[in-house]
Design a protein around this nucleic acid. Structure first.
Length: 557
RNA sequence: UGGGCCGUCGCCAAGCGGUAAGGCACCAGGUUUUGAUCCUGGCAUGCGCAGGUUCAAAUCCUGCCGGCCCAGCCA
């Protein structure tokens, strides 16, 4: 198995910190964790975090846990847990231990009691709205709640009653007693526990109260002996609270929280809420729609785990807000697929070609390479006959000089077959070219001529009688705006051409046995993978080939 | 406007006081039975700006400017 991308992971500021901690013997071994909330599918942004956390564990001989941050039963579902497990495995990582924050509910509760006994937490009866008012603003300090000095005994009683399910949602709230005048709003007596009489997918109806993220996360990390707790930049302001909780309850382990910038990809949305909306409002067909930036969508699109890991290695890890260009992701998948994809011939928009001087009824078996540079990938046979299909784009009635393809009087090479020269064409009543008439040179079998004459262009083709029919899905970016998330309504910037379905594609016969886990290059067209959800033979375009001609053509217009 | 964080090539990103790595993109050539791949070369007298310290500053100091995040009983 290739571990190329794993041995070349560049260093970054977090790896440097960890290396220093290991060198100074602050830690004997590193322990990280990947902590998704099971409220949606994993996306390319999560891949960055996964590669960071699991990659560090791997490279420093440490361990990485998978922990579900399942403290909000109203938004979380078991389906997501399964999908997340599947995606992390597919990306190629194995966790040391699998945990759920909900497994710590009792310990979390016990620690809360400890805080109350220390006079560091209190039960507040203010309404949500009042709490907002009392909190103050960015420039105005907050005001103490009237309940702030409730006695420890009373707090203990009320919290026990909360836990016993005696109150309605929102009636009381357990808060940390820190500092209502703190310039950091997160320290103005943050909520620790809320009453939420909701059914939890793992703990059922055991708990009518659920702990908040800030309180849960740090303790969960401490319980698991995490050494470095890596999270995204927006939690930077929460770090003082993370440290406060662990300092107050005096856990033997106090992980170091380190923040890094989340991935932002141009023309892409990476917000579970918004991705969920795309699915719910049917802008796409499911979380694994090949246009989605989800791991499952990328997988169905034909991206490989190695290409995603390579991408994560290339983009780096820093604290700087950045926007990665889609070209970087495309480069990663092209590099992998160029190396591993099996070459095939497929005509997406067929144009019939009749080779006048080729014997009627004759069929020849020609040999084609499965990879032009890798002999070990072998060869296959393809049938050639009098009537073939070529790509519509490979013929132009009025062709510019630099157009190295077919036009009346021009000669091209049919890949692995013969040189043909166009002698005429047939149009239908609309004036559209529907058939080409060509002649072939029998001496050029295999694609080279004994007289050494050169043809500038080589085009792909497929024998009409031997081709198989298939549907091909062409995907383009889902959004037309480079930063849809920043727009008032991101759905207004959906690309109407994000999916083009081609129903009359003609593929070489070998593709009848295509497998969903083999990646193909349709020569001169792009990389494709068989769709794993459709009954009829159908292929998804992963990414196009680089197309210098298309670029030149565009520049000339 | 309180607090936190960030500004090195179009997009990423090394650099941590000794005179600007690398990748993507782009440009120019070469090879090629995929206008693919591959190969060669080009691409920051400059590190947000302005001062200062120093023999020497992207790196240290001061002051500005710009951007991002925080006022959920979400994570």
């Amino acid at each position: 198995m290739s571990t190329e991308d794993e041995t070349t992971t560049p260093t970054n500021f977090i790896r440097n910190i960890i290396q220093a901690d290991l060198d100074s013997a602050k830690h004997a071994a590193v322990q990280t964790r990947f902590p998704p909330e099971p409220n949606g599918y994993l996306h390319i942004g999560h891949a960055k975090s996964i590669c960071l956390n699991f990659g560090i564990a791997r490279d420093f001989n440490g361990k990485c846990n998978l922990r579900f941050d399942d403290t909000n039963p109203e938004k979380e579902e078991e389906e997501y847990v399964h999908a997340i497990i599947n995606d992390v495995k597919w990306l190629g990582f194995e966790w040391s231990e699998e945990h759920y924050a909900s497994d710590y509910f009792q310990q979390l509760y016990d620690y809360a009691v400890v805080l109350i006994k220390q006079g560091k937490a209190y039960v507040d009866s203010l309404s949500a709205e009042q709490i907002r008012e009392y909190r103050g603003t960015l420039t105005k300090t907050g005001i103490d709640s009237p309940d702030r000095n409730r006695s420890i005994e009373e707090n203990l009683e009320l919290f026990a009653a909360m836990r016993a399910g005696k109150f309605e949602d929102g009636k009381y709230l357990l808060r940390a007693k820190i500092d209502m005048a703190s310039p950091n709003i997160n320290m103005r007596d943050p909520a620790l526990y809320r009453i939420k009489r909701a059914h939890h997918q793992r703990t059922g109806d055991d708990w009518p109260i659920y702990p908040m993220y800030d309180y849960t996360h740090c303790i969960s990390d401490a319980i698991e002996n995490i050494t470095h707790s890596l999270c995204t930049l927006e939690f930077e302001d929460h770090r003082p609270l993370y440290d406060w909780v662990l300092d107050e309850i005096k856990t033997p382990c106090h992980p170091q929280q380190i923040e890094f910038a989340r991935l932002q990809l141009k023309y892409t949305i990476t917000s579970k809420r918004k991705l969920n909306q795309l699915v719910t409002d049917n802008h796409v067909v499911g979380w694994d729609d090949p246009r989605m930036p989800t791991i499952s969508g990328l997988r169905r699109r034909g991206y490989t785990p190695a290409s995603i890991r390579d991408f994560c290695n290339r983009i780096g890890v820093t604290k700087k807000d950045s926007f990665i260009e889609v070209a970087v992701l495309e480069n990663s998948i092209r590099e992998d697929l160029n190396e591993h994809a099996v070459r095939m011939m497929a005509v997406l928009k067929p144009l019939k070609v009749t080779i006048e001087n080729y014997p009627e009824g004759q069929v020849e078996e020609l040999t084609a390479k499965n990879h032009p540079q890798k002999e070990e990938m072998g060869t296959r046979n393809i049938s050639f006959s009098k009537t073939i299909y070529i790509e519509r784009d490979d013929f132009l009635e009025d062709a510019p000089k630099k157009f190295f393809r077919l036009s009346v009087g021009r000669e091209v090479r049919l890949r692995y077959a013969y040189y043909i020269t166009c002698t005429g064409f047939v149009k239908d009543e609309n004036g559209d070219v529907i058939e080409l008439i060509c002649t072939y040179d029998p001496a050029t079998k295999g694609g080279s001529s004994p007289d050494g004459r050169k043809v500038k262009g080589t085009i792909h083709w497929v024998s009409a009688d031997h081709a198989i029919d298939a549907t091909v899905n062409l995907y383009d970016r889902l959004f037309t705006h480079p930063n849809p998330a920043a727009c008032d309504d991101f759905t207004e910037h959906l690309n109407p051409e994000s999916l083009t379905v081609l129903n009359n594609c003609k593929l070489e016969a070998a593709l009848a046995n295509a497998s969903t886990d083999i990646h193909y290059q349709f020569e001169r067209v792009g990389y494709f993978v068989k769709d794993n959800k459709t009954k009829n033979l159908s292929f998804n375009r992963t990414v196009t080939l680089r197309d210098t001609w298309a670029k030149l053509d565009k520049q000339n217009q």
